[in-house]
Design a protein around this nucleic acid. Structure first.
Length: 275
DNA sequence: TCCCAGGCTCTCT
DNA sequence: AGAGAGCATGGG
């Protein structure tokens, strides 16, 4: 993979394992939108980014700096990980091979921990469209406005609010969970920064101290913002798909990268209306 | 009208 | 420790 900065646009050549719609709209992140020309826009780590894939396969990140690419986007898009190797490993199983091929180009994003926590608290017993709407209102009402876009609110900001304040979100019973999450992060009952180094069970138990965070939400946080590729979020789709495809048990070759396999299975199952 | 949505909490055995 | 109702809101 070769990187080049031309006039503050970052060109990434040879990124075969990076499909924008698959990665940005597969249900791991909720703030990316695509226009009619297939240009994607989103906000992450308090920065706005526009990007697209050219017809020759080159990825372009517009109007950003080499410094931001090195410090933020390289890690956000998981560019240090060799997905070709992982797919080779998963493809030892024929069904997984098919799921990998169907879901080609999905990368696991490394998102901001507090944003991911709130997003997946909101996701429970909810649908993608409404999740996006609630997160959008969360940012517009309580984030900071910068050059026409809104940052994700900080834990401090959310912790200063009341349930009445959060009524504008129309997030239903989840509002009290958001407040609890913000409060526990601010008063350091839950330390998000150390979860990456902890083992899966300990990290999961830390997150589950928050009201409204169970095993599924915790595993989503660990997979999508704390580099725990061994975390395996089990939602309704995955439970159905695991039964149909594997008789309930994940193939041995997928254990090390269970979370990545999960994302391929999830996309495959949901997109093909499996189960 | 009923059912469901990337679940979790609370209660009752 | 396992099962089941209830939960806010909105779309199909």
């Amino acid at each position: 993979m070769k990187i080049e900065n031309k006039n503050n646009n970052i060109y990434i050549y040879g990124a075969e394992d990076f499909d924008l719609p698959h990665t940005l709209d597969c249900g791991q992140a909720f703030r990316w939108v695509c226009d009619e020309k297939n240009v994607w826009s989103g906000v992450a780590f308090n920065r706005f980014l526009k990007l697209e894939k050219l017809s020759d396969g080159t990825i372009v990140l517009y109007n950003t700096t080499t410094e931001d690419f090195e410090n933020i986007w390289k890690d956000y898009f998981d560019f240090d990980r060799d997905y070709g190797e992982i797919i080779k490993l998963l493809s030892e199983n024929a069904v997984l091979k098919e799921a990998c091929e169907y879901s080609h180009g999905i990368r696991i994003l490394n998102q901001e921990p507090f944003e991911t926590l709130c997003s997946f608290i909101i996701s429970q017993n909810n649908n993608i469209k409404r999740i996006k709407g609630i997160i959008s209102r969360l940012c517009e009402n309580f984030g900071d406005k910068k050059d026409g876009y809104y940052t994700f609110p900080t834990a401090e900001k959310l912790a200063s609010l009341t349930l009445e304040d959060l009524a504008v979100l129309r997030s239903g019973f989840r509002a009290k969970y958001l407040l609890d999450a913000a409060q526990k992060v601010v008063n350091r009952e839950v330390e998000l920064n150390t979860l990456k180094e902890m083992n899966l069970d300990d990290a999961r138990n830390q997150l589950m101290k928050i009201k409204g965070v169970g095993p599924k939400v915790a595993d989503c946080c660990l997979l999508f913002s704390h580099r725990h590729t061994d975390a395996f979020p089990k939602d309704v789709w995955i439970k159905r798909a695991m039964e149909v495809l594997f008789g309930g048990e994940l193939p041995e070759c997928a254990k090390e990268y269970a979370g990545i396999a999960q994302q391929y299975i999830f996309f495959y199952a949901r997109d093909t209306k499996l189960g």
